[in-house]
Design a binder for these strands. Structure first.
Lengths: 231, 231
DNA sequence: CAGCGTCTTTGTTCTGGCGCAAGGATGGGA
DNA sequence: TCCCATCCTTGCGCCAGAACAAAGACGCTG
């Protein structure tokens, strides 16, 4: 399993209250895995045998419908745990997380989840809060999809992205991993064509600056205004 | 706080592994509240001071957008816990649960949540599974809203309803609480007009039977076929 | 640096379902 | 019993955005 970078793990809020001994015990059960761009950590429908923690990189979790349509359910950022289906009483993984950027993942066998939570109550509480936040986010998205039109949904999605994965750059905020129009379309329930048109319009207004698999937000405030309604 | 019907509580899966003594300790901190039709247990945005368990009846949880649009985020069924925002690190309630049918609710102050989980690990695990299931459901809904057209979404929503709140009745399955076209519209992200049209069409095909705030599903299988695609 | 696959842009056509409008049914309350 | 508040149905016009189509642009590979 090679050397697991303890400082990376230590820095995560989820583990900050853990004793060194407990942390070591956890890490002893873990394996480290490098995931190159495009590769999946596991596949939707596969039996859940492990759960994971993203140390570095970026994953997009997709679900495929029976008729082949694909959507992006969420984006996994460094420090997030994912794939803990077993803890939720599921036998299989509900989605496929694939690497949008070169990623580094910690893997534990599902049996360790018990250790994870029993031995250390914060972790359980923390995990619950995490899921709780995701639930909120999901509800927000449902509300957006139900009530807002496409342009506002895209604006919201982009704002969320720069919030979660924004890096300051001369004259704006860049989304810090490769993301295509298609991806944004799958996050907002529309088509890449429509997204492209919208981004072009925004670029003309000086709100953003596009590029192949790139997006730089020039005027986050303007975008927020747009997202909130009155265009 | 009057007499809390212990048999009602005992029957819930969430508490089945709890000792009588522990159960009593929990119930000692609870208050019982009757919620008449149309009334809200609490309001969206209100500070979270309590969490709840629905003993009897039916609640629909709505969220209102800044521009006044309303959607139904979920339906609370007997045995479900709800409004535990504090456990998820939120200060306020994210939605408004109002009674679709005369309801009976157990209320605990948020401080008791600690007791709830620490004293009894199953409860924590159970709560987490519950949230996990909701998260799944939410993702399913997101996927549906993103990829399916209105008729299929409505079909899915109705199927979920008869699954969660169906009561057998001569020649079909009835949704066991008052539900309007408007409600279904708010669950599927459409308008009551469209829902009405769809239900009329279904009625003509012999799939369902409508009525004021009523819905009887005559042919669940047919509906399922419709929901899955090939019309 | 030429070739190719992937990603993006932009135009045109077409349609699901929303907005608007009007009328009809149902049940509860006085 | 009648009235009134809700709730439901149905018709019609319109438009956001999907579907279809076809070029362009970028960047990687050999």
């Amino acid at each position: 399993m090679a050397a697991i970078d303890r400082s990376l793990v230590r820095a995560l809020p989820m583990f900050e209250k853990l004793s060194d001994a407990d942390l070591d015990r956890l890490l002893a059960r873990a394996t480290l895995r490098r995931v190159p761009i495009g590769e999946a950590v596991f596949e939707q429908g596969q039996k859940a045998t492990q759960f994971f923690l993203l140390l570095h990189g970026r994953l997009k979790v997709t679900q495929v419908t029976s008729d082949g349509q694909q959507i992006i359910v969420r984006v996994v950022h460094p420090g997030d745990i994912f794939g803990f289906a077993k803890a939720l009483m599921r036998e299989d993984y509900p989605g496929t997380p694939s690497a949008a950027a070169e990623s580094l993942v910690l893997c534990w066998p599902t049996e360790v989840w018990g250790l994870f939570v029993e031995q250390n109550p914060h972790l359980a509480v923390n995990a619950m809060q995490t899921i709780g936040q995701r639930l909120q986010e999901a509800h927000t998205r449902i509300r957006e999809m139900a009530t807002e039109e496409v342009e506002r949904r895209v604006a919201h999605a982009v704002l969320r992205l720069i919030d979660q994965a924004g890096r300051k750059e001369g004259g704006g905020i860049r989304i810090d991993f490769p993301i295509s129009r298609q991806d944004i379309a799958e996050m907002t329930g529309t088509t890449l064509h429509t997204v492209s048109r919208i981004l072009s319009a925004w670029e003309a207004k000086g709100l953003v600056e596009g590029g192949r698999q790139k997006l730089l937000v020039r005027d986050a405030a303007g975008l927020a205004t747009l997202a909130e309604g009155e265009s």
